[in-house]
């Protein structure tokens, strides 16, 4: 056996989110639009899931094309060029091809040369899983500048005649750039799975559409997720009262509000700002958290440096959350 010693990781002392961007397709689809072909109506959709309108990608738009646009915006804000990025991670569960994965395709579109690249499939929790991996990569020294993209074209996987799901899911992309930092900007992830509920949301094969058992998923999301969010805050050495902004996965407005209520009753501030982007964006799975945060920022509801609590949850069932400072 060699006596050689493997050197410990020598990366940055901490990680931070240095840039954020998003892309929503141009096509706005209202509840009235859907009611032309589905047995539903505006009032029913608003009260059941809280959505007023959502965005559908065009036929020429893809997980890769939308992701690349969001990524370029995040890179511009972070002040990094393609030459700076040395790892690309894409969180997605709707890529139409098994291989190649989306991350190399997005790297190619952006002229990013030879990055470490892979996709994460943790469905609607994918962004928070990816953020943990990206932050650890800069702390370990595996990368200096990580591009993390959440991009989904859910309309490829939803039966347009399925009124339970066609009203919920939409398309879009969000992205962040994660770099090293002397002061920590990304807290540890709280993550886990509910392996006993694995079949409650699925796309069983490539010829099938998304299926979900709404009541089971709703019960789980409204009872199991708030404690995970609390755990993520504690793991970062913070209190719930330190959280400025709550950005949950935008699954259903009633789930968002239920999680927010529980966190406020557990100690979060009454003036906690809560992302409710699902109202005009729909459920975009792994894209929903960065899209929602960027849109809150654009609306002046969040400022740079504020503490964001992100929590993703969905098919698997799997979940992950952490705090980070808003770029």
């Amino acid at each position: 056996m060699s006596g050689a010693v493997i050197r410990p990781a020598q990366g940055a002392p901490g990680a931070r989110v240095a840039g954020l961007g998003h892309y929503r397709p141009d096509r706005v689809v209202t509840n009235d639009d859907l009611a032309q072909t589905l047995d539903t109506n505006d009032e029913w959709v608003r009260t059941r899931v809280g959505i007023q309108e959502r965005r559908f990608a065009g036929p020429d738009e893809s997980v890769v094309s939308m992701g690349a646009i969001a990524a370029a915006k995040a890179m511009a804000e972070a002040g990094v060029t393609a030459a700076d990025v040395d790892a690309v991670i894409v969180a997605t569960c709707t890529l139409p091809t098994q291989i190649p994965h989306a991350a190399t395709q997005i790297a190619g579109r952006l002229g990013i040369h030879a990055p470490g690249s892979f996709d994460v499939n943790a469905a609607c929790a994918g962004f928070c899983y990816g953020l943990e991996v990206a932050a650890q990569a800069v702390r370990s020294g595996a990368a200096t500048t990580v591009l993390l993209v959440g991009s989904e074209k859910l309309t490829d996987w939803v039966d347009p005649t399925d009124r339970a799901n066609a009203i919920i899911f939409a398309d879009g992309a969000g992205a962040v750039v994660v770099t090293g930092a002397d002061t920590e900007g990304v807290g540890p992830v709280a993550w886990g799975s509910a392996e006993d509920l694995t079949e409650t949301i699925n796309i069983p094969d490539r010829a099938s559409f998304i299926h979900q058992e709404g009541q089971s998923v709703f019960r789980w999301a409204t009872t199991a997720i708030a404690p995970v969010a609390e755990r993520a805050v504690r793991m970062a050495g913070l209190e719930l009262a330190d959280v400025d902004v709550l950005v949950t996965h935008q699954a259903n407005l009633r789930i968002v509000d239920a999680i927010a209520r529980k966190l406020v009753s557990a100690g979060a501030r009454d003036d906690l700002r809560v992302a409710r982007d699902i109202v005009t964006t729909g459920n975009t799975s792994s894209a929903s958290i960065p899209v929602a945060l960027d849109r809150m920022r654009a609306a002046g509801e969040v400022a740079s440096g504020e503490v964001v609590l992100a929590i993703g949850f969905g098919a698997g069932l799997t979940y992950a959350g952490q705090v980070f400072r808003c770029p």
Binding site: T47, R48, G214, Q215, R219, T222, N252, R254
Partner: peptide, 11 residues
């Protein structure tokens, strides 16, 4: 009362 409210009532 819709199916999701029934879940909230049950919980």
């Amino acid at each position: 009362i819709d199916s999701l409210s029934m879940v909230e009532i049950a919980v």
